[in-house]
Design a protein around this nucleic acid. Structure first.
Length: 278
DNA sequence: AACTGTCCCTGCAAGC
DNA sequence: TGCTTGCAGGGACAGT
């Protein structure tokens, strides 16, 4: 499932292969992938534009265009962006195709169709893409220190795991990295944020930055059914160093004493070590 | 404010 | 072997 490190890896691919390219032709297969507006709006918004940059905020990929509009791609559960030579066989569930002026194609592939593609006016983001306007701080793309985290949490009685998953609080963390970050910080997922002192907050802030940075360096995590891959179809390797995610019932690799517990916190499967995490 | 539940959708795994 | 059922998951949203 693409989270910040996976989306960042895709962003870097887009920066290399899409920036500076003119989009000559656009195909939209399934309308569901462009449901926020329409097939016609997305085609008209993309065709004959030049991609000027590849940005990211949280899990949102942002491609400013020379028209003044910005294309947004959200991968959600199962979305992929793949680069291919024009005319190559497309995989099942290829819903949007951008034909580029260098002969390549960018494909938006998304079996579960939770993802989306939209072209919006950044000056009207509040109306056209309100979730993006209300996104919390991005811990990699924006300045992010312990006071920033304390401010983002604010006064709340909520538990750490749902807070980390809340995109309005911190942007980009999903289920995998929330569990890995809390294990690194040695904090229980159900612990109320209000119980953290300054030292805990500093540890948590460092864990967020370190886990995400290491995961980006590893090209993200590729596992299970929702096969995340980068623009060239290559998987990441961070799953090889997961300490808790997907390891419920196994012995903790960190303390070698606890058994990784599986519980439900904030409606999401959560894995954590009752010995390491307090 | 914060919680729970529902919906969207598909592929995979478990159970029959 | 082949069906059915259930579950996972990001995030918006409605209801409590």
């Amino acid at each position: 499932m693409p989270e910040l490190p996976e989306v960042e890896t895709v962003r870097r691919g887009l920066e290399r292969h899409l920036v500076g390219r003119r989009i000559e032709r656009v195909e939209v297969g399934r309308e569901r992938s462009v449901r926020r507006t329409s097939r016609e709006a997305v085609i008209a918004g993309l065709i004959d534009t030049v991609v000027e940059a590849a940005d990211r905020r949280g899990k949102y990929l942002l491609l400013p265009l020379d028209s003044g509009d910005t294309a947004m791609i959200h991968l959600r559960m199962s979305g992929q962006v793949l680069l291919a030579v024009g005319g190559a066989d497309r995989p099942a569930h290829t819903h949007v195709v951008l034909c580029l002026d260098d002969g390549n194609e960018a494909w938006f592939v998304d079996p579960r169709t939770f993802g989306e593609v939209v072209v919006f006016d950044p000056d009207n983001v509040e109306v056209e893409l309100p979730e993006l306007a209300r996104l919390g701080v991005d811990p990699i793309a924006e300045p992010f220190d312990a006071p920033t985290l304390r401010h983002a949490f604010g006064a709340t009685s909520r538990a750490l795991k749902p807070l980390l998953l809340d995109q309005h609080v911190v942007a980009g963390i999903g289920n995998i990295y929330a569990d890995e970050i809390l294990h690194r910080a040695r904090l229980r997922p159900d612990r109320p944020a209000s119980s953290l002192d300054r030292r805990h907050l500093a540890t948590l802030q460092r864990s967020i930055v370190d886990v995400l940075t290491e995961a980006i360096e590893a090209g993200g995590s590729t596992l299970g059914d929702a096969q995340y891959v980068d623009l060239m179809g290559k998987g990441g390797s961070y799953q090889d160093v997961h300490r808790v995610y997907g390891r419920g019932g196994e012995r903790c690799l960190t303390c070698a004493r606890g058994w990784i517990r599986r519980s439900v916190t904030g409606g999401r499967g959560t894995q954590w070590c009752p010995i390491c995490q307090r």
